[in-house]
Protein backbone atom coordinates (compact mmCIF):
# COMPACT_ATOMS: atom_id res chain seq x y z
CA UNK A 1 0.00 0.00 0.00
CA UNK A 2 2.70 2.48 1.10
CA UNK A 3 4.86 1.34 -1.79
CA UNK A 4 1.99 1.84 -4.22
CA UNK A 5 1.26 5.34 -2.97
CA UNK A 6 4.90 6.30 -3.20
CA UNK A 7 5.37 4.89 -6.67
CA UNK A 8 2.24 6.56 -8.03
CA UNK A 9 2.66 9.92 -6.35
CA UNK A 10 6.29 10.30 -7.36
CA UNK A 11 9.12 10.55 -4.89
CA UNK A 12 9.54 14.29 -5.29
CA UNK A 13 6.21 14.94 -3.58
CA UNK A 14 7.45 13.82 -0.15
CA UNK A 15 10.40 16.13 0.30
CA UNK A 16 8.46 19.03 -1.21
CA UNK A 17 5.66 18.43 1.27
CA UNK A 18 8.14 18.25 4.15
CA UNK A 19 9.82 21.44 2.99
CA UNK A 20 6.52 23.31 2.77
CA UNK A 21 5.53 22.13 6.25
CA UNK A 22 8.94 23.26 7.52
CA UNK A 23 8.66 26.72 5.97
CA UNK A 24 5.11 27.25 7.20
CA UNK A 25 6.12 26.11 10.71
CA UNK A 26 9.09 28.49 10.69
CA UNK A 27 6.94 31.41 9.53
CA UNK A 28 4.33 30.73 12.21
CA UNK A 29 6.97 30.36 14.88
CA UNK A 30 8.67 33.60 13.86
CA UNK A 31 5.35 35.43 13.97
CA UNK A 32 4.68 34.01 17.41
CA UNK A 33 8.12 34.77 18.80
CA UNK A 34 7.90 38.38 17.70
CA UNK A 35 4.35 38.98 18.81
CA UNK A 36 3.81 42.36 20.51
CA UNK A 37 4.64 42.51 24.19
CA UNK A 38 6.67 39.28 24.32
CA UNK A 39 10.10 40.91 24.64
CA UNK A 40 10.23 41.06 28.48
CA UNK A 41 9.29 37.39 28.69
CA UNK A 42 12.15 36.29 26.42
CA UNK A 43 14.48 38.76 28.13
CA UNK A 44 13.90 36.92 31.40
CA UNK A 45 14.51 33.55 29.78
CA UNK A 46 17.74 34.76 28.22
CA UNK A 47 19.11 35.43 31.71
CA UNK A 48 18.33 31.96 33.03
CA UNK A 49 21.87 30.63 32.69
CA UNK A 50 23.17 33.55 34.72
CA UNK A 51 20.75 33.37 37.59
CA UNK A 52 20.06 29.72 38.24
CA UNK A 53 21.75 29.78 41.64
CA UNK A 54 23.70 32.03 43.95
CA UNK A 55 27.36 32.36 43.19
CA UNK A 56 30.00 31.83 45.87
CA UNK A 57 30.62 35.58 45.96
CA UNK A 58 26.93 36.21 46.56
CA UNK A 59 26.87 33.65 49.34
CA UNK A 60 29.89 35.20 51.01
CA UNK A 61 28.49 38.72 50.53
Amino acid sequence: MIRLVMERSGLTLWPVLSFVIFLVSCALMLAWLYRPGAAPFYGRLARMALGEDRTDAEKEG
Binding site: M29, L30, L33, Y34, Y42, G43, A46, R47, A49
Partner: peptide, 11 residues
Amino acid sequence: RPVYSYRLSVM
Protein backbone atom coordinates in the same frame (compact mmCIF):
# COMPACT_ATOMS: atom_id res chain seq x y z
CA ARG B 1 25.94 38.49 29.73
CA PRO B 2 22.53 37.01 28.88
CA VAL B 3 22.02 35.14 25.63
CA TYR B 4 21.81 37.69 22.82
CA SER B 5 18.42 36.51 21.57
CA TYR B 6 16.37 33.82 23.22
CA ARG B 7 13.93 33.98 20.33
CA LEU B 8 16.72 33.19 17.92
CA SER B 9 17.71 30.22 20.07
CA VAL B 10 14.15 28.83 19.78
CA MET B 11 14.32 29.08 15.98
